[in-house]
Design a protein around this nucleic acid. Structure first.
Lengths: 165, 165
DNA sequence: ATAGAATCTAGAGCTAACTCTAGGTCAAGC
DNA sequence: GCTTGACCTAGAGTTAGCTCTAGATTCTAT
């Protein structure tokens, strides 16, 4: 079986423009052409495409993905380099996910902050008396709820039946 | 206490250029100026900055962060909008983290693929006999190892003492 | 008092990753 | 046979998010 650029684009949910751009950047040296010069993707090419899509999602720049594909085309002498490359990006992705988890935690605390303000009808309940400054104790209060076993994912949710004015 | 743009930049580990750019984009309407027109950040401003940094990390575009800050400056009438905004971006971030988890899983399987190839000295061990195409059973084999209780985070790691030729 | 560092604004410049246009080729259906 | 639509290349255009430059203050430390 072989596939046109349009078919591949549909399967991967990316545009043919993008695929041609990737080709221009050296990401698709494995793709064959027919007599008319049109790209014909083979079944095995999807193994490469899968890797490209994965690395993209992991946030690896196109140029570096190109370097990796180059290694792949070179053969067994580059196996260690390829391993190291994936190892490095695994570590980076783990670090990124840890950061995103902190970000998510923060978002959830702020959601709780607004849930409680909303229920009180005013943000002033979180301010230090007589000021417009947020009372640091409010964040501590939220942390205490979490420490006491509440699920931070639920704490910021509005109770059922809250009217959407 | 008040802080100069340079001090804030240091604290947040971003450049003063970037802070001015954010200001230009409407993200910092709360920042005061001294007689000479220089920005003076207050302690309470860090609550906003924290939110801005968080939303940036969550992947929210600068313009949308600006919209959120506008809501904040408007007062209690926007509490629900602000809650909805955070709620929406919490959901998006959760979805993104799920995608990244799949990406990480894939990266780990490929690491194992190269670990085993490296140990065999050639990638051919993963090809269908007599071809240059990857045997789909190889991925299935990895999945089986995981199903049997192996930690995918460890499976791809090279054993200790592997020489770094 | 003055040199050097930090700040200001306006606006130009940069990079990554597309995204599209123009002008042409090719294959399939009427 | 001819039209329609997918494909081709080269190269221009776009967007986001900075990043820097120039020229003019202003602050800090000797």
């Amino acid at each position: 079986m072989s596939y046109s650029i349009g078919q591949v684009a549909d399967k991967l949910s990316i545009s043919p423009y993008t695929l041609r751009y990737y080709d221009k950047e050296g990401l698709l040296p494995f793709v064959d052409r027919n007599q008319a010069g049109r790209r014909r993707f083979k079944d095995n090419d999807f193994n490469f495409l899968e890797v490209i899509v994965c690395l993209k999602e992991a946030g690896v720049p196109v140029k570096q993905i190109g370097n990796f594909i180059d290694l792949c085309m070179t053969g067994d002498t580059t196996l260690e380099d390829r391993y190291d490359f994936l190892n490095e990006h695994e570590a980076k992705l783990e670090a990124k996910m840890a950061r995103l988890q902190h970000t998510l935690d923060f978002l959830r605390w702020k959601k709780w902050y607004y849930k409680t303000a909303l229920q009180a009808g005013t943000e002033r309940i979180h301010y230090l008396p007589g000021t417009n400054q947020v009372d640091p104790a409010v964040h501590a209060e939220f942390n205490q709820l979490v420490a006491d076993g509440a699920d931070p994912k639920d704490l910021g949710n509005l109770p059922e039946g809250t009217a959407k004015a």
